[in-house]
Design a protein around this nucleic acid. Structure first.
Lengths: 379, 379
DNA sequence: CCTACGGTAGAGACCGGTTGCTATCCGCGC
DNA sequence: GCGCGGATAGCAACCGGTCTCTACCGTAGG
């Protein structure tokens, strides 16, 4: 007979219930209530007849011991652990934060907890994170943000989709294209290309013919789709975007600031800037204003995403509204109730342009509040 | 012998390893590798001598079965489940989002996962959420945001602190006052009162004598501290704030907009507005500008928190910088390495005023970039 | 040639809650 | 008075890893 095998417990098969130093168990509660562990479990579950007097005894004992169930033990026996995992590049981006809120709200409404994982800006870390989520046996793994258009990456994600599916879980892709037919994954996307098309159309119909695109990310699906809409809108008028005006860069404020400064002093000719995201646009606006150019009179600026800051910058920013919270909510909803969307598990939410001051053409129609074209009023 | 006892498994004590429909276990791997479960476990753990040939066989089997450990089973046996819980009102607030990033980064660096829980704007829901976290056996439970100054609430939190402590976990309070001596909780706070004091001092030294305070929340610790600093700065000059200029409200952009509109038409006399948070300040700025008043010439505006939008509004916003990410990181670090801060487990980080355009006095010293008083340069 | 010992691998008892089957107690009808 | 059935409670076997103890192997020393 050895002493001190594990921590401070099991000295003699647990003499004291849980006075100090350790949480109490079902068996502690059972002992105190004078019943068996099964009975306590049934009181916990509620789905079994337990005599009123017995239940009262058990509840009293639980209260006295300040008992809470061990979620791991419960998850081990049962099928699910009631958790939804949410994988994102960076929570501080307002765009992702709002999707996160949607996910968390819906998860909470469905009685699920929410694990947050970030990849610290490195999309390849997603692979490691998803692996960890498999270990956690989450009900659903929701991956947000553009995907790398890279075969090895694609294959790994496909592999995870199957692995999660085998384990009874579900991979959900938000804001990225499907992995292909036959791959067990749910896709919740928004009309990325259409939004860029509409926004570019707005600029073109405002007379702009040389529009700079700031923030292309080669190999990123989101970027490719926005460029596609940008190009298609040009082509509709028999035009083509000038490749010299399409600049590569990351989705950050500081990139927007730098790129706009350089563009302004480059001598290139342009009358409007399509920033790939609102974050980039805020940097662009600062640079343009510092250069003493007026927005929108000298240069029109537009963004994408419609994050809250779009209403706070000066001038307020024309952008494409993306239903962020709804994306998050739909992701959880579809993952947990897979029968709701039988065909293909691919949902696409609409986007629409929100016109604000940064692209407003001088004229009699300049109203005070936001106005909207090509879609319902949003704000 | 009964059939179909549980889900689709255990038909005959698991004939097939894990062809389909279920994840594979240590025993599956063991069977395939021709070793015992213990050996597989030892390969997983790595902390035990396993012959090279055996290890190779096991690794091969794991790869072939696409095996991942079950985190719950592991957590059940072991002491900890390597998870840190993060409880916050609302992830979409940039202030909290940046703290969240700090938490997540540090948790990740310490090999921990991060659970995100939100209270949907209802601080009382914290109690329910913390209860859930006890069930999850998280290594630490980090609660962020102002506390209700309410005895029942305080008592419940104290209770949780003890309960978590008994279970080997740790309660961490970020940006809220300690629960009292003897309560096992770690506190990571910032100099809330000092920041408000410095900012108010800046306004007073700019000649402002009637400063409106927008966004007091009665009963919220954060609010009480900011008001205290606001008041102390007045008293230092033998002044007292006018109670008529201290307005109650929530920490939102729309409150700021509404309150500022009403204040501007109320006929009350004032030359500066101290918004309780930057979010409120953005609304205030919009209202002031819509009313045709100039900032800072007619009315100076200042905020609190130094969230990114403070640099995007026009004019840029003077505010108090709070080291958000560092708060998050410190919370995790102190919770996991409790010996690092032996005395009292109470860490207070500094704050400093960041001067920007919204309070700038016209004069020769108006430079282009941000400038800072009362502390190191930040932006 | 036998024993001792370092190095490895296996058996089995946990962790804490759930659940199918069984056992018991009660009242009631025959 | 005895048997029967409904309502409850208990037993024990899981869930999937981990860990301790023990058994076994080969080899080196006596």
């Amino acid at each position: 007979m050895n002493d001190m095998t594990k921590g401070s417990r099991a000295v003699a098969k647990r003499t004291q219930p849980a006075l100090n130093g350790d949480a109490s168990t079902v068996r502690d509660v059972a002992a105190r209530a004078g019943v068996s562990a099964s009975t306590v479990s049934r009181v916990l579950g509620g789905t079994y007849p337990v005599a009123t007097a017995t239940r009262a005894k058990v509840l009293k004992a639980m209260r006295e011991l300040d008992y809470v169930v061990n979620a791991h033990a419960r998850a081990l026996g049962g099928a699910t652990n009631n958790t939804v995992a949410f994988v994102v590049d960076d929570v501080t981006g307002p765009f992702y934060a709002h999707i996160a809120r949607g996910v968390e709200e819906q998860a909470s409404a469905e009685g699920r907890l929410c694990m947050l994982c970030t990849t610290h800006g490195d999309p390849r870390r997603i692979l490691a994170v998803v692996e960890t989520m498999r270990e956690q046996r989450a009900d659903a793994v929701i991956v947000v943000g553009g995907a790398l258009q890279d075969k090895a990456y694609h294959d790994r994600m496909t592999h995870f989709a199957h692995a999660l599916d085998r384990a009874g879980s579900r991979l959900v892709l938000v804001g990225r294209p499907p992995l292909g037919p036959g791959v067990p994954a749910t896709v919740v996307d928004y009309d990325n290309e259409g939004g860029a098309f509409a926004l570019t159309g707005h600029l073109l119909s405002g007379g702009h013919r040389r529009i700079a695109y700031l923030g292309r990310v080669p190999g990123l699906s989101t970027s490719a789709q926005r460029i596609a809409g940008f190009t298609r809108a040009h082509e509709l008028l028999g035009l083509a975007p000038d490749p010299e005006l399409i600049l590569d860069g990351v989705f950050s404020r500081s990139y927007g600031y730098q790129a706009a400064r350089e563009l302004l002093t480059s001598g290139k000719e342009f009358t409007a800037i399509f920033a790939a995201t609102d974050m980039i646009a805020t940097g662009v606006i600062q640079a343009v204003r510092e250069a003493g150019r007026r927005i929108p009179q000298d240069i029109a600026v537009a963004g994408y995403d419609d994050i809250p800051v779009a209403r706070d910058v000066h001038p307020t920013l024309t952008t494409v509204h993306v239903p962020q919270e709804e994306l998050g909510r739909a992701a959880v909803r579809l993952a947990l109730h897979r029968d709701e969307l039988p065909d293909g598990q691919h949902l696409v939410l609409g986007t629409h342009v929100v016109l604000r001051e940064s692209t407003r053409r001088p004229g009699p129609s300049s109203r005070g509040a936001d106005f909207v074209a090509l879609g319902p009023v949003d704000s």
